[in-house]
């Protein structure tokens, strides 16, 4: 049993399909959706954890491929701009999963661990420097 975090990018034409149903029913996967934006007029996104046997996850990826869904493993919906971040630490008490964290209490430098991000988007409005943005809320990231 393994867990992988994926960012799925949906083309407009995939919007009508019950994809998550197939992940559960056909591939025996446990699915935990962090955030999804499925829009009939635009490209959609979903960030989720899938847990199951590695072979089933690999089969599910082929299923995504067949439906023209782009799977990314190394990214999520949240973007943290290292250059815009000044390591002030305002975000620290507003990030519930500690994805934004202080690397070293001596230098007080802030960093972002996208593995831990649950896409709550709390940081976006709390960052005074607009260092955080999200593909789920592109209007706020200027």
């Amino acid at each position: 049993m393994i867990t992988r975090k994926y960012l799925l990018k949906f083309p407009e034409k995939a919007v009508g399909k019950p994809l998550i149903y197939h992940l559960v029913k056909d591939y025996d996967l446990t699915v935990n959706i962090y955030r999804a934006k499925i829009d009939p007029d635009d490209i959609g996104y979903m960030v989720l954890d899938v847990s199951g046997r590695e072979s089933d996850i690999e089969r599910a990826k082929i299923f995504f491929d067949e439906n023209e869904i782009i799977v990314t493993e190394t990214m999520n919906g949240m973007r943290w701009d290292k250059e815009r971040c000044v390591s002030c630490g305002t975000c620290i008490t507003h990030c519930p999963s500690n994805a934004l964290y202080i690397v070293d209490r001596k230098t007080m430098e802030v960093s972002f661990n996208n593995e831990k991000c649950i896409e709550c988007m709390n940081c976006i409005s709390h960052c005074p420097f607009k260092a955080c943005s999200s593909i789920f809320n592109s209007s706020i990231s200027e």
């Binding site: 390591s87 975000c91 620290i92 230098t107």
Partner: peptide
């Protein structure tokens, strides 16, 4: 109480 700050020690350094 959880602590945040709005000044940057790392930039000051």
């Amino acid at each position: 109480i959880e602590v945040g700050s709005i000044s940057s020690y790392s930039k000051a350094l």
